[in-house]
Amino acid sequence: MPNRKFGRASDQRAAILKNQVTTLIINGKVETTVARAKEISAIVEKLVSSAVKESDNYTTKEITVSAAKIDGKGKKVLKTKTAKSGAKYEVVDREVKTKTVQVDNASRLAARKAMIKWVNKSHDAEGNIINPVNKIFDDIAPRYAGRNGGYTRIIRLGARRGDGAEMAILEFV
């Protein structure tokens, strides 16, 4: 847990940091106070460096998947069956396919679980669910593959009107 208290109870402090870390990962930048930006930066640096380290630590595996057959209009194809009693009924026609899936190795899975502590699942403008952990591994980590730290920058904006708090923009480099 970070050092700064921000004048809040620990559960509120954790919620603020979690929300802002998630916002930074999804949007690429967040506007906040300088003190919060420093804390968020420290957290995100650790998450990204962990993702960069574990980026290629997975295997692929073929699995069999049973899925409903779909007709041209996008509806499920039905077929008629006969029960032992002679009654006829319809069931969804299914097809079995093989599919290649990615399986994380133990250390990569542990890194993902550690990241889940610092992010919330989010939604985009269309309402689709975005998993920030997947975004870190799929989008952010490959950008910084050859870099050792320094993934974020803090740009100071000046005092906030109202309470005079020093404001900053935190963004990925």
Rank of each mutant, 00 (worst) to 15 (best):
Q102C: 04
E95W: 00
A125L: 13
L157K: 04
R147H: 12
N148P: 09
R156M: 12
K81F: 13
M167A: 13
D124R: 02
V77A: 07
K76T: 13
A145M: 06
A83V: 09
I63A: 04
I140H: 05
S66F: 08
T80C: 07
Y89K: 03
S122L: 06
V103L: 05
V65N: 06
T60S: 05
T59R: 13
G162Y: 10
R160G: 14
R112Q: 01
T80E: 14
D71H: 06
A141F: 04
D71A: 06
A141Q: 02
R143P: 00
K113Y: 02
G74F: 07
N131S: 03
D104A: 07
G162P: 12
W118S: 15
Y89N: 03
K76D: 12
N128H: 06
P132L: 00
A111N: 11
G127V: 05
Q102E: 05
K99S: 08
K97A: 07
A67R: 10
S66K: 08
T100S: 09
K117L: 15
N131T: 09
K113F: 01
Y151R: 06
D124Y: 07
V92Q: 12
R94N: 13
P142M: 06
T82L: 05
K99F: 04
R161H: 03
S107Q: 08
R108H: 01
D104S: 03
D138V: 11
R94Q: 09
Y151H: 06
R161T: 11
S122C: 07
K79P: 04
A141P: 07
E62D: 13
A159V: 04
A145F: 09
R156T: 03
A110M: 12
E126Q: 14
A165I: 11
D138Q: 02
E166D: 15
G164C: 05
G150R: 00
S122R: 02
K97F: 09
I129N: 00
G74V: 13
A111H: 00
A87I: 13
E62Y: 08
E62I: 11
N105Y: 03
R147T: 15
P142V: 13
I136T: 02
N131W: 00
L78K: 00
R147G: 12
M167L: 15
G86F: 01
A165D: 15
A145R: 08
Q102F: 03
V119S: 01
I129W: 01
V77N: 05
F137G: 03
K61S: 10
K88G: 04
G164Y: 01
E166I: 02
T64I: 14
Y58D: 10
I154H: 09
G149T: 11
D104N: 09
L157W: 08
G72A: 14
A114N: 06
D104H: 03
G150A: 08
R94H: 08
L78G: 10
G74A: 14
M167R: 10
T64G: 12
R156S: 14
D93K: 01
R108W: 05
S85Q: 00
R147S: 14
K75E: 15
R160E: 15
I154S: 08
D163I: 10
A67C: 10
E126H: 02
D138F: 01
K135Y: 02
G164H: 00
I63G: 00
D104E: 07
D104W: 04
G164Q: 00
T152A: 09
K113M: 11
E126M: 11
Y89V: 11
A67V: 12
K117P: 02
T100D: 04
L157S: 04
N105G: 02
R147C: 12
T59I: 14
R112I: 03
